[in-house]
């Protein structure tokens, strides 16, 4: 378990704090979306979870190890893996397989085990057959998958993704989330920093940050449907929230809170079975669809 207790941090003493009094817990197997406007402290918080930054005040504890104690750093970085936004700045090896082997090599694993992990990780991200390729010859999406493979080969218990899927095409994103789902079933926790609210909707839990503070922490479906809260913090609500809101303006009153596409479809079906008064507003193009 990762425990963050009253964490505050400023990059330079005397300057404004980037993180202010943050407390949270991350349990094994949870999929968490970390959202918030640019500069709100998301990346700074992630770096604390990997012991790349050390708390100014408060503490971060990874499976019982305090990040403030340098002697734990090697083990913490084995347990908590992180993929950054720009894949070019995190690829170390001169070939694909050599890059994936960098982390396991740092752990001092025998060559046979490194080879086994490299081949497993490359197959998992769909880069098998690319072993001898030079990293700079890969596309942006392939480089990001390579960075993910490098992290997976370390077999971490917690995975931190700092907008790691932002450079992927839809197929690549789908592949990454398929992999993450598989990892969740193996009790690996994932914290995904994202600006994509549809992506965040897939999470179990959402952490919303603004101005270095944790504004709210709760189930994804509950937080991401709060259109006004998201807008107040400079975020664009997911399509589902926007649709529910617009339907509400047209008189749609669901019996239960809408938390997924399935909920919305079910409530609309119920609504359609009742007698409806359709209001058509001036200046609004309305469409009526159905089947014979």
């Amino acid at each position: 378990m990762i425990t963050v207790e009253k964490l505050s941090y400023a990059y330079k003493p005397g300057t404004d704090a980037c993180l202010r009094d943050i407390s949270l817990e991350i349990l094994p197997g949870q999929y968490i979306a970390l959202i918030g406007p640019n500069g709100c402290g998301k990346t700074t918080l992630l770096k604390h979870l990997n012991a790349l930054l050390l708390p100014g005040s408060g503490e971060v504890v990874i499976d019982g190890m305090k990040t403030a104690e340098v002697r734990h750093h090697a083990l913490i970085r084995q347990r908590v893996g992180m993929v950054f936004q720009n894949p070019d700045n995190q690829i170390v090896g001169m070939s694909v397989e050599e890059d994936v082997a960098f982390g396991p090599g740092n752990l001092g694993l025998p060559s046979s085990e490194i080879r086994r992990r490299v081949s497993w990780a490359l197959e998992l991200v769909g880069l098998d057959g690319y072993e001898k390729r030079l990293p700079h010859t890969l596309s942006g999406g392939e480089k990001q998958l390579l960075a993910l493979a490098g992290l997976l080969a370390m077999r971490p218990s917690y995975i931190l993704l700092d907008e790691a899927a932002s450079s992927l095409d839809p197929a690549g994103r789908e592949r990454v989330f398929m992999i993450l789902n598989r990892l969740r079933s193996e009790n690996i926790a994932v914290v995904n920093v994202t600006h994509n609210m549809e992506e965040a909707l897939q999470a179990d839990r959402v952490l919303l940050m603004a101005n270095g503070r944790l504004i709210t922490d709760g189930p994804a479906a509950q937080i991401l449907m709060q259109r006004d809260l998201l807008k107040a913090n400079g975020l664009v609500p997911p399509l589902l929230a926007e649709l529910s809101f617009r339907l509400g303006e047209a008189g749609f009153k669901p019996d239960k809170p809408i938390r997924s596409v399935e909920d919305l479809v079910e409530e609309i079906k119920k609504w359609c079975h009742h007698d409806q008064n359709l209001q058509v507003q001036n200046g609004l193009m309305s469409g009526v669809a159905g089947h014979v």
Binding site: N50, R77, G81, F84, N89, Q90, V92, F102, L151
Partner: peptide, 10 residues
């Protein structure tokens, strides 16, 4: 950034 990524990978 490379230094950070290398540290993150142990």
């Amino acid at each position: 950034q490379l230094t950070e990524a290398m540290n993150a990978r142990g």
